[in-house]
Deep mutational scan, measured.
Amino acid sequence: EAHAAIDTFTKYLDIDEDFATVLVEEGFSTLEELAYVPMKELLEIEGLDEPTVEALRERAKNALATIAQ
């Protein structure tokens, strides 16, 4: 499951495998979680700032909209 989540994140969020791995290690496994989890939870991840989190959430929401079509 972790590998599938990493693949999904790299494909749809335009991030590298290392960043995707950090997200999975922090407990995220779906685009929905990244799109809708409280921003505070993402900001608790070391190295993430508000602009990065906002961009990540926007990419996740856009990916979900694209997949739904």
Rank of each mutant, 00 (worst) to 15 (best):
V22P: 00
E50P: 10
L42V: 05
Y36K: 09
K11E: 06
P38C: 07
E33K: 12
L31F: 04
F19T: 10
L31N: 00
V37I: 09
E1R: 05
A20W: 02
E58V: 07
F19S: 04
F28W: 07
D18Q: 12
T30D: 04
T10P: 01
E17C: 10
L42Y: 04
P51C: 11
A5E: 03
E1C: 09
E58Q: 11
D14S: 08
N62Q: 15
A20E: 00
L23T: 00
D18T: 11
L56K: 00
A4T: 11
G27K: 02
V37Q: 08
D7Q: 14
A65Q: 12
E33A: 15
L34F: 06
E50G: 12
E1Q: 13
E50A: 12
Y12E: 04
A68D: 08
V53N: 01
F28I: 08
L48M: 13
D7S: 13
V37E: 06
A63C: 05
L34V: 09
D7C: 10
E58L: 09
H3A: 14
L43G: 04
T66Y: 11
T52G: 08
L31W: 02
Q69I: 09
T8M: 15
A68L: 11
F19Y: 06
E26M: 15
P38V: 06
Y12F: 09
I15M: 05
D16M: 05
L31Q: 00
I6P: 02
R59E: 05
L42C: 04
T66M: 14
P51N: 13
T30E: 04
E17W: 14
V53A: 15
A4N: 12
L48P: 02
L48Y: 05
V37R: 15
L23N: 00
I67P: 03
E17F: 11
K11L: 08
K61Q: 10
G47M: 06
A65T: 08
S29N: 11
Y12S: 03
F9A: 00
T10A: 07
A68T: 09
F9G: 00
E26F: 15
I67F: 07
D18H: 15
H3F: 10
L56F: 03
T21Q: 13
T52N: 05
A60L: 04
A20V: 02
L43E: 04
A4Y: 11
T66Q: 13
A5W: 07
T66F: 13
Q69K: 05
G27W: 02
L34A: 00
Y12V: 05
A63L: 05
V24Y: 14
A4Q: 14
A68N: 11
N62D: 09
P51K: 14
D49Q: 04
K40H: 14
L13D: 02
T21W: 15
L42E: 02
P38D: 15
T10K: 12
V37A: 15
L43H: 05
A20C: 02
M39T: 10
A55Q: 09
D49W: 04
N62C: 09
L23P: 00
E25L: 14
E46M: 14
E41W: 13
K11Y: 11
D14C: 12
A68E: 09
A55T: 08
P51S: 13
K40G: 10
D7E: 14
L43Q: 04
E33V: 09
A60W: 02
Y36L: 08
K40A: 13
I6N: 03
L23R: 00
L64Y: 03
A5I: 14
K61E: 07
R59A: 14
T66L: 15
H3K: 15
I45K: 05
L23S: 00
K40F: 11
T30L: 05
T8N: 09
I6M: 07
D18S: 13
A55V: 09
G27M: 02
R57V: 11
Q69A: 12
E46N: 11
R57Y: 03
E50L: 14
E44A: 14
A35K: 02
T30V: 03
E26L: 15
T30A: 04
S29H: 14
A63R: 03
Q69M: 07
E41Y: 14
E26P: 01
I6F: 04
G27T: 01
M39K: 10
L31E: 00
E46P: 14
K11C: 07
I67W: 06
K11P: 00
F28S: 00
